[in-house]
Amino acid sequence: MDSTPHGAAVTAAGLGVKGPRGWAFQNIDFTAGPGSLIAVQGPSGSGRTCLLLALTGRMKSAAGTAEVGGLPLPKKKAAVRSVTALAHVPGVAELDPALTVGEHLRERALLQGRFGGSLRALLKPRRERRAAARALVDTALAAAGLDLESLPKGIRTSVRDLERLEALRLSVALALIGGPRLLAVDDTDLKLSDDERGAAWKMLHGLAAAGTTVLAVCSEPPEGNEGVVLVRTGSRPEPTAPESTPDGPTSTTDGEESETPEGREASEAGKTGKNGKTGKGSQGEPAGAAGTGGADSAPVETPAKTPAAGGHDDEEGAADALAETGRA
């Protein structure tokens, strides 16, 4: 690919998307120059995909401002869509498992030739159009690192038979055929092994180095974060510290009990009873009043877990916002 940076600069200030039941995300601020690799990190349901769709002109923002290649959002959504492409977005831009790799590539090249090119290109002889389409496909496959010869049945391999990393590469290659200035990839590291994750990030780093701005949604950013613009959505819940009592059992978050020496002695006394017989009191009644854990002892409450900031509301808001784009 041409190493001249042609990617789109991306900026956001206080950006937010809101659905009928709440915010999908809000207060997003970052600046990325042309040819940057932008990693959008956050837990599932924190609005990562909504942010990806908003920055590519597919979803309308409700707060703040954003620009892609100097085009303001949401005012110039159509123009932004023309210079951006989506890859690996479930329900919006995903592969058809019933089709082969070759069928996907031919379909994408045909659409690009008819709707993505100029009128002059359409008037060229058929042989020249075919050669141009083949060159676009070959260039995109090379950039995505997908070797057709390594597939089980070559170009005739069905999508359902592809490994996860191969499917990701194919989805990226299809998006690159249109020559976007901004490539947006969803679920970049979903269910990938450590080696596969490293290979995926290497591919995206290569695309950014070649000049295309890359926006990648992930659960974990690439190691080192060198040269990566990191954007975080949502927050993870803080671990809840267990409460303890000075003379009795301590309740932990998983329901097990840990005892202090004093609490253990009291517990043993309750089990043994006053006459030293295990499990019986002085009159042959079940022990309980003499030790902790008996009928008269007060239960120790497990501390309630603190929900993640914006967790439930953000998940509902993200679901509503995505539903408007056709994704359940």
Rank of each mutant, 00 (worst) to 15 (best):
K191F: 15
L192T: 01
D194P: 09
D195M: 01
D195T: 10
E196P: 14
R197L: 08
G198S: 08
G198W: 01
G198V: 00
G198C: 05
G198A: 14
A199E: 14
A199D: 12
A199Q: 11
A199V: 03
A200H: 07
W201C: 04
W201L: 10
K202F: 13
K202A: 15
K202W: 06
K202E: 15
M203H: 07
L204K: 05
L204H: 06
H205E: 12
H205L: 10
H205A: 14
G206L: 06
G206K: 06
G206E: 10
G206Q: 08
A209G: 08
A210Y: 08
G211A: 12
G211S: 14
G211W: 10
T212K: 02
T212M: 04
V214L: 11
V214M: 09
V214G: 08
L215S: 06
L215D: 06
L215N: 01
A216K: 06
A216P: 13
A216G: 09
A216E: 09
A216T: 06
V217L: 09
V217K: 01
V217D: 02
C218P: 08
C218A: 15
S219N: 10
E220T: 13
E220K: 09
E220S: 12
P222R: 00
E223C: 06
E223D: 12
E223W: 04
E223K: 06
E223H: 07
G224A: 04
N225M: 13
N225A: 15
N225W: 04
E226V: 10
G227D: 09
V228F: 07
V228L: 11
V229Y: 04
L230W: 05
V231D: 01
R232S: 15
R232W: 03
G234N: 04
G234W: 01
S235T: 12
S235G: 14
R236C: 09
R236M: 13
P237E: 00
P239M: 02
P239W: 02
P239H: 00
T240C: 11
A241F: 08
A241N: 05
A241L: 14
P242M: 00
E243L: 15
E243C: 12
S244M: 12
S244V: 14
T245A: 09
P246K: 00
D247P: 03
D247C: 11
D247E: 13
P249T: 00
P249K: 00
P249E: 00
T250Y: 02
S251T: 03
T252K: 02
T252L: 15
T252G: 05
T253V: 12
T253D: 00
D254P: 10
D254W: 14
D254A: 15
G255E: 09
E256C: 12
E257D: 13
E257H: 15
S258N: 06
S258E: 10
S258I: 13
E259G: 02
T260N: 08
T260Q: 01
P261K: 01
E262T: 10
E262G: 04
E262S: 11
G263Q: 03
R264S: 11
E265V: 10
E265H: 07
E265D: 12
S267C: 08
S267N: 07
S267P: 01
S267Q: 09
